[in-house]
Nucleic acid binder design. Structure first.
Lengths: 191, 191
DNA sequence: CCTACCGATCGGTAGG
DNA sequence: CCTACCGATCGGTAGG
C-alpha cells in the first residue's frame, strides 16, 4: 500500500499547483519545473496530465471515505457520531488542503470513465452520512430538521473549509467541528 | 444602467461555458462558436478573455451585495433578517447559477488589479453579514454560537448551493432558506 | 533524465 | 463580422 516516495512527491507537487491555479491553469512544464526536471521527463512517471489529476482526486476520495467509515460503523451515540464525523471531514480538508481542494474543485475535469469512478465514491460518502443521520432520527436523538437538508448543511460547511481555512492560528478540526455542531445541534436563538 | 443586449448575451454565453468547464478550460473559440461568429470577431466586443471573466464576476458580486444591503438596512427583526438574508443569497445563486458559480469558483483567475477589486466586494459582503449577526447578538435574539462561525456556516451553505441545486423539482430559495434556518435557529436535538 | 522536436491549439491582431 | 495569420505555448513523443 505504500507508494514510492518519488511518485507521492510528484502528486504533492501537482496537487499544490492544481489547487492554486486549477487543473487547466497548470501546465505540465510548471509541474516539471517544480520537480526540478524538464517536462518530457515527467512521462517516465506518468502517462498523461489527467493521470496526475485522477490520482490526486482518488486519494482525496479515499481519505474522506476511510475517515468516516469507522465512525458510522462504531457504537457511539448519535451526537458523538455527528460531531466526530464532521471533525473527521474537517481534518481531511485541513491536513490535506491541496488534495481536498482539487477533489472538491477540479474533479469534473476528469474524462468520462474516471469521472464516473469518482462520482461513485462521492455518492458512497454521501450515503454514509445519510445512514448516520437516519440512525439519529430513528433513535429519537434528532427530532427537528429534514435529514436531506441537514446533510447538505453539514457537508456544505465541511467542504467550504478549504476556501477560508488558514493553517496558522486557527482552531483544530475538532474545535471547528464543536463550533459548528454546537450551532447545528442546539440552535442559536432563545426558544 | 442597461447594457446592450448583445453584450449581456455574450456574458451569458461566456458565463455558461466558464461555469461548465472553468475559465482556463474554456477557449475563446468555443465562446465565439456558441455566439455563432469566429473567434477574431469577438474582439470587436471585448478587449481580452479576462475582460469577460471580470464582467461576469463583477456582476455576480453586485448581485449579492444589492440583494443583501436592503435587508441589513431594514427594520425587520433579527430572525427575519437572517431568514431573508439567506433566502436572498440563495436566490442570487439559483437564479444566476452560471454567474454565481464563476463568481465563487473562477474569480481567482483574475489578474492582480481586478482580483483586488473583487476581493474588496467580497469583504464588503462578509461585513454586511457580520453587521446582521452582530445586531442579532446585541439585541439578545441570538444567544448561542459564535458570530464568526455562525457567519461561516450560513455562507457555506448558501455558497455550496451551486454545487447541488437542480433547477427542476427543487424547493424555492425561500423554501431552502426556511429549511436551513430552521435547523440553525432551533437546532436538531431534544434539549 | 535530457535533447530535440511534433502537430495542435492557444489568445489575439491586421486589414478589409 | 470574415479572412488570414501571428508568435507563443500547449501536452506529449522519439531516441539516446
Amino acid at each position: 500500500m505504500t507508494r514510492s516516495t518519488s511518485k507521492q512527491e510528484l502528486y504533492d507537487i501537482a496537487g499544490k499547483l492544481f489547487s492554486k491555479k486549477g487543473y487547466h491553469g497548470t501546465t505540465i512544464r510548471e509541474i516539471a519545473e517544480a520537480r526540478g526536471i524538464l517536462s518530457g521527463s515527467l512521462y517516465t512517471h506518468i502517462s498523461s496530465k489527467e493521470d496526475l489529476l485522477f490520482h490526486i482526486v482518488d486519494d482525496g476520495a479515499e481519505a474522506f471515505l476511510s475517515a468516516l467509515e469507522p465512525i458510522v460503523m462504531s457504537q457511539q451515540d448519535a451526537k458523538s457520531k455527528l460531531r466526530n464525523g464532521l471533525a473527521a471531514h474537517i481534518r481531511v480538508v485541513t491536513t490535506q488542503m491541496d488534495a481536498a481542494k482539487v477533489f472538491l474543485h477540479d474533479w469534473t475535469a476528469l474524462g468520462e470513465e474516471r469521472h464516473a469512478v469518482i462520482q461513485q465514491k462521492r455518492d458512497k460518502y454521501e450515503d454514509l452520512w445519510a445512514v448516520l443521520l437516519a440512525e439519529g432520527y430513528a433513535s429519537g436523538t434528532l427530532i427537528r430538521g429534514d435529514a436531506k437538508y441537514l446533510r447538505i448543511l453539514i457537508l456544505s460547511v465541511g467542504n467550504w473549509v478549504y476556501e477560508w481555512y488558514k493553517t496558522s492560528g486557527e482552531l483544530t478540526p475538532e474545535g471547528l467541528a464543536d463550533q459548528f455542531m454546537d450551532i447545528i445541534l442546539h440552535g442559536v436563538i432563545a426558544e
